[in-house]
Amino acid sequence: MEQTVKNPADGAPDYNFAYLDEQTKRMIRRALLKAVAIPGYQVPFAGREMPMPYGWGTGGVQVTAAVIGPNDTLKVIDQGADDTTNAVSIRQFFAKTAQVATTEKTAEASIIQTRHRIPEKELREDQVLVYQVPIPEPLRFLVPRETETRKMHALEEYGLMHVKLYEDISRHGHIATTYAYPVMVDDRYVMDPSPTPKFDNPKMNNMAALQLFGAGREKRIYALPPYTKVKSLDFEDHPFEVQTWEDKCGMCGARDSYLDEVILDDQGNRMFVCSDTDYCAERQEAGHRGPQHHDQPLGSADRGKAAE
């Protein structure tokens, strides 16, 4: 017997807890257990159609639906932001179908579903990070055929990926891949970290939290158990490097976070702000100020000035 949400009148009474039926959740849960047992390996699963289009996080939503319980607190981010359409709609989806508490605070969440960012705040052992993944196969743009890429993973044949990075160097002088930067997991599987900026790659290494990845259209689940070695692919003479900015966040003044560029007008004026909205808000609450913060006097030297 399927069971409905705690208070059917408030939720979605015609649906099972967290939308998916119990048999589907069991199937996803079995795939998740295999995924954590084989870090970085893509486990096929019978992905369901979800009430949102492919590309909007159907994989992440299915993983979250299988993992979430009534006592969880859910945070959803899209490119670091809690207040974008994708994040708001997924948060509301689970608030309605699972009646769980939701939060925008990284520290308060037990499950964080993310599209393309890892929160700046260090995650804890009691948290789970669920990634929405469009293309789980890191070799897909090099070899279109699934039977081939599967064989390449089986044989640990990753030379082609190094050739791709080398071609970057020969063309641009450096490794020009800036997002979905391939990683080697526990010295065995090459894995796509989903289209997170390479800035976030070092956070995946030895993370205290469990990391789960769901690709809905491609019907693959993979995982990184806590404290797993995750190394970004590179060369001895071209070591992996993350992005750096000469600017700081216009709102909170942070220099250590991933910054989005915001175009202000057609005169070339622009500003940079933290992509992680919770991180930025927390810093502003703590009194940190960037040059474009509205607290700053209009006439001050920095405010409104175009970034150098």
């Binding site: 069971q3 954590v36 469990l210």
Partner: peptide, 18 residues
């Protein structure tokens, strides 16, 4: 069914992850 199997799964997921 829903809550109990979720709770047991979370224990199993934690156990297999750690």
């Amino acid at each position: 069914t829903a809550f109990d199997s979720n709770a047991v799964f979370r224990a199993l997921l934690d156990a297999m992850s750690r």
